[in-house]
Design a protein around this nucleic acid. Structure first.
Lengths: 217, 217, 217, 217
DNA sequence: TATGAATGAGCTTTCATTCAT
DNA sequence: GATGAATGAAAGCTCATTCAT
């Protein structure tokens, strides 16, 4: 999982089908047997394909897992972007921050909870490489949020980037954390707390407030 | 890394020394070659010890890595607790939230930045098991923060737990994330943003404010 | 040598060849270096094959040795059955017992003496598990002899089974014992003694004689 | 278990005690964990002794197991000899063969059944070396029986040796076989069958009868 | 003498990868 | 292209044996 290996782009229809089978099989094996139990031979067997064929389409084991991760992240990105933009569009610019945040959170929790087993393997077992797929994913979400924040009154690009970075990671980790940890309180509580956390922050920062120092100076 | 295996308690001074060498070697190999490159033979060689000796002190490979992780987490816990309690003690109960948060953040960033390579391997490569060492670590920090929140006016135990869970994970992930990602803005910016995020949230929630709903109720 | 593991059934001609090479190599190593000196690596090397290939055809070390043993026992069983049935068929029902026994013994001694080195390792070094291959082998011979005894006037099934058990083990152990121990007297002597032992017993028991008690009843 | 290694003869009382503890521990480990589970470290631990001390008294692992076997065989030999001689002494020279055989068999079955677990490990798992302890044991019993047979009318030394060899192995294997196999018939049946087998043979051979040929010549 | 820490060769087994068919 | 047999390095771990204390 160095993240550098890429699969070859298949041209034929037949090829596409094989790639699909292999990726699907890899995902299944990953969920069923964990990262350590996922060998190329097992993936090939689960795909009903020979090990040699697997290497026709992927340069190495890493590339297969990277592809699984990529697809997961692509799906996430599509859903997250849509949920975020929808929530933002629906909510009034000023007082609607909380509603927008809340809507996004609900959508995220739905999304993550849909496939918790795969989420678990990805978060808990897949080695993540610096500058790898996950970083790029988060970076794109950062950009999206940055853009919106700028339209909502963020005081400049740099502050907007910092705010986006802060908010995106907070929401990402706490929503996945809730799904995976299943702490002792109901989902609505996380939604409430996270909404308070994030919306309060954004409201304060977008209404021109300087960063909170140690009390009113 | 099931986290269940423990090493035998060494009795002799000599034994302690061997355990130290092995654990130190394991840490080095881990940092130098990554999780997948860390074999028992390599650890033993790095420790200047035979493979058999390693198994005299640790029941299996897992136990060695668990020990490395444990020591890291223990050190973290000590520092984090102390930083948190110091910051809390110094700050005035009401308006001092931001100061307390800021102080804790500074200490955390110092701590994590001290050994970034080890932090990276632990965060990015060590498989985390649910209910494992890291979960227990976070749980203890949760308890600590919960306690303080209750003395600071949290409206009951359950809300305090939810707030603690929220705040602890936020701070944990964003501080480590900053150290590992090295995004394009300076450290003081993260501190400012995180302070605004967390202190704003706590102030709102501790001053009796109900969770922000969609607009002014 | 738990005896439970079986090898996969080879489909290709090529596969059969590999299995043959591995089994042959295992037999050689077993004879040359004894049970304790027989490692999977050594077997693979002797077969001119990689360790990995061995495991393509056999689930574990045990299965290889079990296969060697199975083949030996199968060959034995075929020969022993045929020799026994031939000798029985040739001999007259009543007075021919001695001839039948003698014929069987000659065949057995020929058979065991043909590969004394392998016989030695199997008898002296291969661990035998109760209910394992060897027990099953003996059981099948028991059945065969029981059947013949019943046609020769044995007084009921239970007595026949007991007689068969007695005779089969006697003959098995003394013939192999003679081949392996090479005691100081010639082969014809063992044949004579064993013929007297077994034929006398069978004649007495089959002619309606009750078990010899202490003195003349 | 090459059978060539011998332990040093201990001179001190202290030494004797250690040897005793080690041998006893070896026997226990052997019974409890089988041959493969019997390591020198485990024996030493079970004996409450250090591995180093074990090597003070035994040149290698083999010597320890050989000592266990030796003691077992010595005990067997004592019992077997006594049982045999008692039975022979009690029985009348001519017609008493069956009684003598029966008495010996009863004693043997009692003896073997007393410690079936140890017997099983020794018979089924301990590698036997040609010309090793067991061969010597059997040889001494052979001598004993040969002697008695000569006093009972055996036609010369060579025939007596052959008869003894035949009878001793038969009785040894069938009695241990009965104890270990536990076939489906009661003990008295084996005793009856074996008595018929052996006594019939001896009576025939001792009364001057030539070896049974193919029917009356 | 007794200890027990230390050794290190060697074991069984796995698996990413290759290549002849 | 597709196959799957074959590879072989390397993994985790054990254990008979040694030797400094």
């Amino acid at each position: 999982m160095t993240g550098r290996a890429r699969r070859r782009e298949p041209r034929q229809e037949r090829s596409r089908a094989m790639v699909e089978r292999i990726v699907a099989a890899a995902r299944e094996v990953l969920v069923a047997r964990g990262y350590d139990g996922t060998s190329t031979n097992r993936i090939a067997a689960a795909a009903g394909v020979s090990p040699g064929s697997l290497y026709q389409y992927f340069p190495d084991k890493d590339a297969v897992l990277t592809e699984v991760l990529d697809r997961y992240l692509d799906a996430m990105e599509a859903r997250v972007s849509r949920a975020f933009l929808d929530s933002v569009a629906t909510a009034a610019p000023g007082p609607g921050t909380a509603a927008a945040v809340r809507g996004t959170l609900q959508a995220l929790l739905d999304t993550f909870a849909a496939e918790p087993d795969l989420l678990r393997v990805i978060v808990e077992q897949l080695p993540r490489s610096p500058g790898g797929r996950r970083a790029a994913f988060a970076g794109r979400i950062d950009d999206l949020v940055t853009t919106v924040l700028l339209t909502r009154g963020a005081p400049g690009t740099e502050p907007a980037r910092a705010m986006a970075w802060t908010v995106v990671r907070t929401v990402e980790h706490l929503t996945t954390g809730y799904v995976l940890e299943r702490p002792g309180f109901p989902r609505e509580v996380v939604v409430d707390e996270l909404t308070a956390l994030v919306a309060g922050y954004l409201d304060a920062r977008l209404s021109g407030g300087r960063v909170a120092s140690d009390g009113p100076s």
